[in-house]
Design a protein around this nucleic acid. Structure first.
Length: 263
DNA sequence: ATGGTGGCGGTGCCA
């Protein structure tokens, strides 16, 4: 099964791109971020007509996440546990059927955190600690799961075109990178990095200053696999195609393929 | 160059 993550930067503005990409790439499961709309504005009819179920946590103007799946979705979380007063729509989790097995997928939109230092950066770090705690709970189940989304963290210097320009940015500060490393070190596998060492491959390019044309981006969208999911990993990649379309999102899809059979 | 672009919503905020 092909599982992808894509920050669409407004689903209303990107609906045509999404439907075109679903048709051309034929993913089984898609994790969407930055819908920028409430749940009642979600295009359920069009998504269903394209062959996908949808589970949505929406929010007016900001954030918003969704899981699309060709097979039914059993929603297990609509918020990231650990901070009840956090109303931002940044996490949804569910179980989908993949061949003979089921896979749990968590779709996350991790806070950007800029400017740092400040309240927004503190919120980002708290959110990452909550994600760490939740991942640790999920690992106790010994099941196949994927935590995917816009992590808003550049893991390594090789994952950004010019690290010296990012030293004070919340996406590249040591505390952010260390918090991501702690999550990975619980025993998760970065599906893209595991099969494509060396860096220099990006999932986001700034709209400004011709970043896309110069291929000056960074890799901030990740699919982290539990050991049981990593055992089934056969391929992964970054599909740059929709970033080249007219009026694109600033992000492009990152995907992985898990074989359906047993180990 | 203390800039630049895009989405939302109708002004600045957020990324």
């Amino acid at each position: 099964m092909k599982i992808a993550t894509w920050n669409v930067n407004s689903l209303k503005a990107r609906q045509d791109h999404l439907l075109r990409w679903l048709k051309e790439f034929t993913p089984d499961v898609v994790l969407l971020q930055e819908l920028k709309g409430a749940e009642d504005s979600f295009p359920f009819m069009e998504i269903n007509a394209a062959g996908y179920e949808a589970a949505v946590v929406g929010q007016k103007t900001y954030n918003g996440v969704a899981i699309l799946s060709k097979t039914p979705i059993v929603v297990t979380q609509r918020r990231l546990p650990g901070e009840e007063e956090d109303e931002q729509a940044r996490y949804i989790e569910g179980i989908v059927q993949g061949g003979s097995q089921s896979v749990r997928v968590g779709c996350l939109y991790l806070p950007n955190g800029n400017p740092a230092p400040g309240d927004k950066y503190d919120y980002k770090i708290r959110w990452m600690r909550r994600l760490y705690a939740h991942a640790r709970e999920l690992l106790k189940t010994d099941e196949a799961f994927v935590l995917g989304g816009d992590y808003n963290v550049i893991p390594e210097a090789s994952d950004v075109y010019d690290p010296s320009k990012w030293t004070r940015d919340a996406l590249f500060l040591p505390e952010s990178r260390n918090a991501l490393r702690c999550i990975v070190n619980l025993g998760l596998t970065d599906a893209f990095a595991a099969l494509h060492p060396g860096g220099g491959r990006y999932s986001w390019w700034d709209y400004r200053a011709g970043s896309w044309d110069r291929d000056e981006g960074c890799r901030i969208d990740h699919l982290l696999l539990s050991p049981q999911a990593a055992d089934r990993l056969t391929a992964s990649g970054i599909d740059k195609t929709p970033r080249g379309w007219d009026k694109p999102s600033d992000h492009t899809p990152v995907w992985c393929e898990l074989k359906c059979g047993v180990n």
